[in-house]
Design a binder for these strands. Structure first.
Lengths: 206, 206
DNA sequence: CGTCTTGTCAACCAGCGGTCAGGAACGACG
DNA sequence: CGTCGTTCCTGACCGCTGGTTGACAAGACG
């Protein structure tokens, strides 16, 4: 009599299609600038089907984030055999490389940090982990306990990192290696000011 | 026959009452955690009256911010007669003092930065102004143009500032003067790494 | 053919920010 | 005392949001 009212898709295929669409839409629009109804319309399906695949809008957003987050985590994973300072340097370089290649995703993530709990948790996790790694690397270099200012220095430096990267992406007038030098130099300066500069040196030498 | 259905208040008095209530509620809850209906309920008035006094929720939020923002701006205003480096130091110290005295407001502001355009504009304004002041102070110390890395260093440092302050408020284990030293030392370190450390020295000496 | 699972949709819900026509309080005036 | 006008105030409503429900269509299997 007529063409079918809709076409069935395999579960996984539909899911992949929706995640891919979400990656695009959430990069073009901020989290609350686009409604689930609009997303469903764009996908050519009903809103209810979208909710069939993802229990909530935030879950959907998190799903569009997950793939990239995993890739980033792998890229940044430090080499356990290298000296702490070298491992940090390598991770940092990998981080910048990833950001440069996925600048839209990175900007999206930073923009949504305060709005979406999932995004905030992701960034916080990465910050906590990184800060802990840096502090461990420092403390491992000597037996002395770290002053609390060292903690503030490292955690503040992670903010510096993201702020500098955002400005770097915005400006486009600085090479990646140059930024890397600025980041490392600033960490050194912050740790020196925190009274833990010698530990960094020791960690670098050791 | 019966008691009045509601009591009338003078325009200004009602407005003050609402702003005071907003300051409390927005400190206890994030911007989108509390609805205008709930605020009106808390104030014992109708939602329409709330909208009679403030054209939108964001305007209402901005009104609750305005008083503190103005006080902060005054406190941070640098002494035009002082040398750039000293003026910066004084402003920074005033900033920390203000944050310590209004930690709830500060945390509220930082939490709402990405959600509320008005808050974002406020923080951006302060950052831009501060960055410009610092850069001008540096450039004034010599005729040489600043490298783009210096811009990134200063703007990144402002992120460091807020990140460090949040951690500082969280920890409570570091004195204000110590934090001040860390901040100044980090700026010095960042500018040195950006190849503009000599300019800072010149500005401090000049 | 029937039946069972899976995929789909229209219609609906409570709550949101925001609007509007009109009622109720109160000071002024006869 | 009445009543009148100003101004402060309200209940009902709007379009939209994220999220839910129940019924039905498509295809696989016997």
């Amino acid at each position: 009599m007529s063409s079918p009212a809709y076409t069935r898709l395999e579960n996984d295929e539909r899911r992949r299609q929706l995640v891919a669409l979400g990656e695009r839409l959430f990069t073009e629009n901020a989290f609350d600038e686009i409604s689930m109804a609009a997303i469903a319309r764009e996908a050519g399906i009903s809103k209810a089907l979208l909710y069939h695949y993802f229990p909530s809008k935030r879950d959907f957003f998190a799903a569009t984030l997950a793939e990239g987050a995993e890739a980033l985590r792998l890229a940044v994973e430090p080499d356990p055999d290298a000296a702490p300072a070298e491992a940090l340097l390598a991770s940092l370089a990998a981080y910048l490389r990833w950001v440069e290649e996925h600048r839209d995703s990175y900007a999206k993530l930073m923009r949504s940090v305060a709005t979406v709990r999932e995004a905030r948790e992701l960034v916080d996790q990465v910050r906590d982990l990184t800060a802990q790694r840096v502090l461990d690397g420092l403390a491992g270099g000597s037996g002395a306990p770290l002053p609390p200012t060292a903690r503030i220095a490292v955690r503040g430096w992670l903010w510096f990192l993201d702020g500098a990267i955002l400005d770097w992406l915005d400006g486009g007038d600085v090479a990646r290696e140059e930024l890397l030098g600025l980041l490392v130099g600033t960490l050194l300066g912050a740790l020196t000011a925190a009274g833990a500069g010698d530990l960094l040196q020791a960690a670098a030498d050791g």
